[in-house]
Design a binder for these strands. Sequence first.
RNA 1: GGAGGGCUCGCCUAGUGGCCGAUGGCGCCGGUCUUGAAAACCGGUAAGGGGAAACUCUUCGUGGGUUCGAAUCCCACGCCCUCCGCCA
Length: 432
Amino acid sequence: MIDLRLLREDPDRFRASQRLRGESTEVVDELLRADEARRSATQRSEAIRAEQKSLSKQVPKASADERPTLLARTKELAAEVKETEAATKAADEALRQAHLAVPNLVQDGVPPGGEDDFVVLREVGDVPVIDNPKDHLEIGEALRAIDTERGAKVSGSRFYFLTGVGALLQLGLLQMAIAQAVEHGFTPSITPSLVKPESMEGTGFLGAHASEIYRLEADDLYLVGTSEVPLAAYHSNEIIDLEGGPERFAGWSSCYRREAGSYGKDVRGILRVHQFDKVEMFSFCRPEEAADEHLRLLAMEEEMLAKVEIPYRVIDVAGGDLGSSASRKFDCEAWVPSQGRYREVTSTSNCTTFQARRLNIRYRDADGKPQTAATLNGTLATTRWLIPILENHQQPDGSVRVPKALQPYVGGRDILEPPSNHPAAAQRSTKG
RNA sequence: GGAGGGCUCGCCUAGUGGCCGAUGGCGCCGGUCUUGAAAACCGGUAAGGGGAAACUCUUCGUGGGUUCGAAUCCCACGCCCUCCGCCA
């Protein structure tokens, strides 16, 4: 939700922001009208309510002959109060709807345009020269690390098993992400994967992307698509202490996405799946600290990418491709040799006060006054990272080199190789 | 799944129809005292909306209802806790 005061002061800024997103300015004008309508409805009902209250107070003090006229008048007022309060309530609801329809104010400097109009901020690392690169699924199957066939058998398409070194690699990667987060003062967190409707709604995921979300009807709970949801809702309806600077979390969770409407897109392997694991950063800070915090989250992501030794580029996402909560978004895209292009592996958004206003997350400013906090999020590592790791570090013999920083997290291995014997055979032999 | 208890201001708590936007404690802020701090004492301290301001309205889990008037009475719902059952 945007700041209504700011809207009243400077509506043109919001219209300009809408144009930069390539969206209609009508929602802004609609909100202005709804705001005006609600204020006049409020004033009317307040005046009548004030009169009712003051007359009501006189009732017990009134003499026996004054009382009947007084009661007649207060009765009349009671009916009027009912009427005007209903009008106010309707105006409130209309305002709320109009308010929800306006996306966050885009930050200055965001490139205009749509999905393809991002600006590349930098390219880091050298793209490896690999003859006939195998793709991650071919490598993963040879290593007995990724099994999409059985994933489909057991759960359906876009599900997979990670087994053996595949499982170790993911656990090691996420473990390394947590270790880095802790080193930088983030609070490691394991978050609920199921949340109540208000948590999902408060974080803004029930709007345009509602169809992306799994819902458990019997319990009226939602499966989260990212731990951003429980982390953001963690402080909902609280006044938090930001005296000592931003409050930072690194949440580890499984993430669930229906991927409705993406059929036929990126079906192969584990690029686009219904369930994956992720370590997500989340910060609460003062609005004036948000832009710096955003760069800090980006730096965290780049530090991780450097550790896994993957070439990548950083893009400044264009206005038309920002989510409704984001004022600015930076993505890191990793080089994927089999596709000969960069693919998104991280995304960090500065939501300024937009998300916190909806979730009612505040802090006290220097004067002790409650103010709406800012929230930011960013990816530290996900299952998808296995793709560029496997592909960029593939060796001609089918093995995969493990980047040095990651080695301690995968049992000291410097190379991933297929198991020497079949797991089932190994099991038989150990059972004797 | 069954039974019971609870939900009031940052936290804890008092309050069973008008004197209640609401008691007290803790915490926090300011002051007195002190070289400084602590203690003690005094004062202040919920949030949100509207208004240029005076001021005013809303909020005692949520939504309805009764009443001139509801934290307080009635109905429904939500959430939390405890116990029993079941169980990874």
